[in-house]
C-alpha cells in the first residue's frame, strides 16, 4: 500500500515562493490502478517525482507498506520495489537497449526481453542492440522506457503519461498491460481509455486534490472539463 500524507511542495524563484503542490493526501491499496489526471501544469509529474524520491517535498510524508520512506533515496525506494517511468525518457550515448534491460531485470535472458518488448509492439531482434540515443524515435523511446520499468517486475509502478507519443496499436497494448498486470500502478494520464482502467481516480487542479474516488464516482464527472464549463459560464 502506498500512502501520500499532506504533501506540499514549494519552489523559490527570484525570492518569491511558489506553491506547486499543497496538502496532497491519498491512499493507493495494493494491486490497484490509480490514475492521476488534471490540467497541464497541475502538478502531476511533481507528485510522481516526490513519490519516487527524485524531488523532496517541503512538508508531508510518504508511506510504503507502512514504512515512512520520505527520507529514503531514489535507490532505496527502487530496492523496496518502486519503479518509475519518465515522462521524457532519458537518452544515453553508447548504452544499448539490451544493457538497460539487463540492469533493470538483473538477468540477461533474451527471451524475457523479447516478451517484454513484444508486449509493446517492438521486435527485440530489431532493438536490443540499438543505442538508447536520440536516433530512436519519440514513440520508440517511450515504449522502451516502459519496457525497462516492466523488466523490473516491481510491486509498485509509477508511469508518467505512458501513452504520450505512441501509436494507436501500441496504445491498445498498453491498455491491456494495465488491465492485466497484478501490480500497483500509479499512472498519470490524459487518455480516457487509460483512465477507464483505473480502480481509483485522482484529479489534481492547481496543485490541490480536486477530486479523489473510485472510477465509478469520478469518471462520469470528467466529461465536462473545467475549461469548457468556464467558457460556458463566460458565454452564458
Amino acid at each position: 500500500m502506498l500512502e501520500v500524507k499532506n504533501i506540499s511542495y514549494n519552489v523559490t524563484e527570484n525570492g518569491l515562493t511558489k506553491t506547486i503542490l499543497s496538502n496532497i493526501s491519498f491512499v493507493c491499496p495494493d494491486n490497484q490502478n490509480l490514475v492521476i489526471t488534471g490540467h497541464n501544469g497541475s502538478g502531476k509529474s511533481t507528485l510522481l517525482k516526490i513519490i519516487m524520491g527524485i524531488l523532496q517535498p517541503t512538508s508531508g510524508q510518504i508511506f510504503y507498506d507502512g514504512k515512512d520512506i520520505t527520507n529514503l533515496s531514489i535507490t532505496q525506494r527502487a530496492q523496496l520495489g518502486i519503479a518509475y517511468a519518465f515522462q521524457q525518457p532519458v537518452t544515453f550515448k553508447g548504452m544499448t537497449v539490451r544493457r538497460m534491460l539487463e540492469i533493470a531485470s538483473g538477468n540477461n535472458d533474451f527471451n524475457y526481453f523479447c516478451s517484454l518488448l513484444s508486449k509493446l509492439g517492438l521486435c527485440a531482434r530489431d532493438y536490443v542492440e540499438r543505442e538508447m540515443n536520440d536516433k530512436l524515435s519519440g514513440g520508440e523511446r517511450k515504449r522502451i522506457e516502459i519496457a525497462t520499468v516492466l523488466a523490473r517486475d516491481a510491486k509498485c509502478n509509477l508511469f508518467d503519461e505512458p501513452e504520450a507519443g505512441i501509436d494507436i496499436w501500441s496504445f491498445d497494448a498498453l491498455v491491456e498491460i494495465f488491465k492485466n498486470n497484478k501490480k500497483t500502478n500509479i499512472i498519470v494520464s490524459h487518455q480516457s481509455k487509460l483512465i477507464e482502467q483505473a480502480d481509483k481516480i485522482l484529479v489534481l487542479s492547481n496543485g490541490q486534490v480536486d477530486k479523489f474516488g473510485t472510477k465509478e464516482e469520478i469518471f462520469p464527472t470528467l466529461n465536462h472539463s473545467q475549461t469548457c464549463e468556464k467558457l460556458r459560464r463566460e458565454n452564458g
Binding site: M52, I54, A78, F86, V90, F92, K93, I103, R152
Partner: peptide, 29 residues
C-alpha cells in the same frame, strides 16, 4: 555526466557510484 542519466539508473536500483561507472562504460563501448 547528465544528472537525469544517473537518476534513471538510480530508479532501477543502482547507487550513484555504480550508475556513473555503467554510464562511462557504455559511453566508451
Amino acid at each position: 555526466i547528465a544528472q537525469d542519466q544517473i537518476t534513471k539508473l538510480e530508479t532501477l536500483g543502482l547507487n550513484k557510484e555504480d550508475a556513473e561507472k555503467i554510464i562511462i562504460e557504455s559511453f566508451m563501448l
